[in-house]
Design a protein around this nucleic acid. Sequence first.
DNA 1: CGATAACTTGACACAGCTCAACCTGGGTGG
DNA 2: CCACCCAGGTTGAGCTGTGTCAAGTTATCG
Lengths: 232, 232
Amino acid sequence: MAKLDESLLNRLPPFSLLDRKQIREILDLATSQRFAEGATVYHEEEEATRFYLLLDGTVRALHITSEGEHVTALHVPAGQLFGIARAFGRSTYPATVEAAAEVIALWWPMDLWPQFVTRYEGFATETYRTVGQRLGEMQTRIVELSVLHVEQRVANTLLRLIDQTGRQAEGGTVIDFPITRQDLSDMTGTTLHTVSRLLSAWERQGIVESRRKQIMVRQPNRLTALSGPRPA
Amino acid sequence: MAKLDESLLNRLPPFSLLDRKQIREILDLATSQRFAEGATVYHEEEEATRFYLLLDGTVRALHITSEGEHVTALHVPAGQLFGIARAFGRSTYPATVEAAAEVIALWWPMDLWPQFVTRYEGFATETYRTVGQRLGEMQTRIVELSVLHVEQRVANTLLRLIDQTGRQAEGGTVIDFPITRQDLSDMTGTTLHTVSRLLSAWERQGIVESRRKQIMVRQPNRLTALSGPRPA
DNA sequence: CGATAACTTGACACAGCTCAACCTGGGTGG
DNA sequence: CCACCCAGGTTGAGCTGTGTCAAGTTATCG
């Protein structure tokens, strides 16, 4: 395998306080791996044997019910750690993770976790901050699911997606990984039919523009207007 | 203030590895405080200046929307830490916490957090485990809100409440803090009317028995039957 | 013994689900 | 390279679970 370049890590929060030698050390312990769109990185409840750093692409954490329904918990953008079960005292992964688009990730054996936490300054702090962020996102999901209507939830979700992973394009902002109506409905607790109807209606009004597996938001402010009461 | 007894702490997971002297040390730094039913311990977004240990009673973490709607995130049973914003890198509390019933808690200034984590063996590990548990509960909430019907969510919630804080009583298990229809609806993302109708129907069938602010489950197995598909 | 918070129940409306039938673009294999 | 296949998408029709509105009853507390 080609030697990994140090510039991959030194800008990322969990490693930003480290010197070249330490970064080198960490990279030499890492394995890099590519995942195709839709590929599963690991399954919920599986023994957590590795922790990952997402170098490129977007990854999706989801739960699959006994009925086979998919519930998407959150999306992880490039640059963040995931699969960090140890950070909250679990020995198994709390969710299934799959690649939303083609993905490049680094991973380390989980046995190294304790030494990363103790040896590398700032690593622990940053990972706990990440945990805090995810917790916050989940709380937002719960509140939204509890009090908002489907239309408002889908509007909010689209706004969040273009905010987190939006790419500027002619005429608007595009979600920069392939996303189906089904995916959106898994994120909002509704059906692909309802999402399809909403997107059709919004397209007629010029708010969004969508092709197969792609959504562009043209008028984010009008989505905001549909997204319901401002969060507290 | 009366000196606190060491037996308060030495059975609780975050402190179970400590010796008498350390426990004494910790207790001498603590302040004990009583909260009446319904009293607010702290508010969401408030500067996190203290962390708490719940000695007796049950506490509820909730979010209040701009519309004034209450969404209950989780219940914390006696013996657990709460308000541990620092454990996930936040400087403000992530939710509002109020006493579900009369509550006794200890608290410490948040400035002591770093020294608790470094100085006391097992404390860090246990708090991260707590964070992991809460994360798990929140995931369950999200999945339930996404795929289950109201009746199933209420059934699941009741089962969870009697499991976590149930007290055995003649003829069934009672939720051992005062709980209104409104409270239950805040936990399940529905209205007090629907909860009332469900409880009435269940009472007619002999599954539950409820007075004002009190619910007893007589036939948990029948609730389980109503609670929808088994979690994955 | 009011007053008020908690609870109940009916009537009705409608958001969003289900069922069904049908398009369509793009990838692939012959 | 083109025809076919099918995942992904659309749209209609109808139904129903739950919310909303409304009106009332019953515990509990000061």
